[in-house]
């Protein structure tokens, strides 16, 4: 997992929420991000109509250890 690249892409998408479908296909050939990782990013941004807090609330696990 290349966290730096993922962070930069997520930041770019967050700043340009209307251009996700344009940006993500371009990324495939340029950055070290796997298809699987891109799928996850696409999935999270497809929930963008949700507020940030709702996104956070969807995180599992439901048992809370820390």
């Amino acid at each position: 997992m290349n966290f730096d690249n993922i962070a930069e892409l997520v930041h770019e998408l967050a700043k340009n929420p209307n251009r996700c479908s344009e940006i993500i296909p371009q990324v495939k050939s340029v950055r070290e991000i796997t298809n699987c990782e891109l799928d996850v990013i696409t999935k999270v941004f497809s929930k963008e109509e949700l507020s940030g807090n709702s996104l956070a609330a969807r995180m599992s696990p439901t048992l809370y250890w820390f």
Binding site: M1, F3, I6, A7, V10, H11, L13, A14, K15, C36, E37, V40, I41, K43, V44, F45, K47, E48, G52, N53, L55, A56, R58, M59, S60
Partner: peptide
């Protein structure tokens, strides 16, 4: 800054990757 700069999205992405 947290909301506008994609912080919650990033944490969700990394969380989802670990879940997978």
């Amino acid at each position: 800054l947290v909301v506008n700069e994609g912080t919650i999205h990033f944490c969700s992405v990394i969380h989802e990757m670990y879940k997978q």
